[in-house]
Design a protein around this nucleic acid. Structure first.
Lengths: 163, 163
DNA sequence: TCAAAAAAGATGTGACAACACTTTTTTGGG
DNA sequence: CCCAAAAAAGTGTTGTCACATCTTTTTTGA
């Protein structure tokens, strides 16, 4: 289904608008289904899962808040309070950092490990389903085009000429 | 730049994960720059602008809340309160609907028209810049691939076999 | 050695999302 | 005509997101 039909837009869109809406709408469908299938059944939000996943893949001593921030998808995520909430439900813990008392290390608790281990299979299964929606060739092409678009967008955001 | 580098991920990702992160991250960059360039200077949020744009493109008598909901990108948007806030800042108005007194029509106020007219050029200019980031061929291809992915995702969400 | 700058988090506030619930109106069967 | 069911929107609440600002600690350099 084209975008115009999905959003009940009568007129044809200009190319840039169509491109932008394609990205936004695809993300919308993707996160909706991910929430419904994977995150909500586990009682987590997507961002919470993302933090657990990051910590799971990180070093045993954990990451500082800033290191987590550099690894989350949303650059503007409010990581301190995201961690607050995860501490509140017992999935992660803050550990004082003796080397720099401004920062702390965030680590998974045993409950956090368990939660991660519980969700990970559903997450991986979903991503395999997603992968199966396109041919390998199309998927590689799509990823490359999105990469190209992202690089271009970053360029628009930083029009600071060289030299 | 690849996704692994951008998110500081050491290991290569599996294909489905790479695809999902590509979509999420591209949307993130896009909305960030749109906010910064277009919406924030006008004192609007993306959703507020979206409603103004929908009303601008709609009939003179406006749309009901339900009709707006069917046209916003985010299916789960809390449209009544989104409209509340727009009424609060004077950009739209509710008009009683004599044909069905449960519902009302939402219309742009003169201030809303003015706000829309003020933001629209920056929005259009941004979308033209976006369009210029890819060749026409690549753009058409990207839109088609995203369409295909969206259709597939919708299929995953509604596995109600026919008959 | 000390004051300014920078870095890392924490916090205040407003906007948004999700869920359930209420009110009002329309609709259709008896 | 009357009443139950459905539809449309508003409301209440809680939790989350996001931006801007503030506090604490560390670094830097005269």
């Amino acid at each position: 289904m084209g975008i115009e039909a999905e959003l009940n837009i009568g007129k044809p869109l200009d190319p840039g608008h169509e491109l932008a809406l394609s990205v936004l709408l695809t993300r919308e469908h993707l996160t909706r289904l991910l929430d419904e299938r994977v995150f909500k059944p586990a009682g987590l939000t997507d961002q919470q899962f993302n933090v657990l996943r990051i910590l799971k893949g990180g070093p045993a001593e954990g990451y500082t808040i800033g290191e987590v921030r550099r690894r989350v998808i949303s650059r503007s995520a409010d990581v301190p309070r995201l961690v607050d909430r995860l501490v509140g439900i017992g999935l992660v813990a803050r550990q004082a950092n003796p080397r720099d008392r401004r920062s702390c290390h965030v680590v998974l608790t045993p409950a956090g490990e368990a939660s991660q281990a519980e969700v990970a299979p559903a997450h991986a299964a979903f991503l395999r389903e997603l992968e199966g929606l396109l041919s390998a060739e199309d998927r590689v092409l799509l990823v490359a085009l999105l990469d190209q678009l992202r690089v271009g967008i970053r360029g628009l955001g930083e029009p600071e000429g060289g030299a």
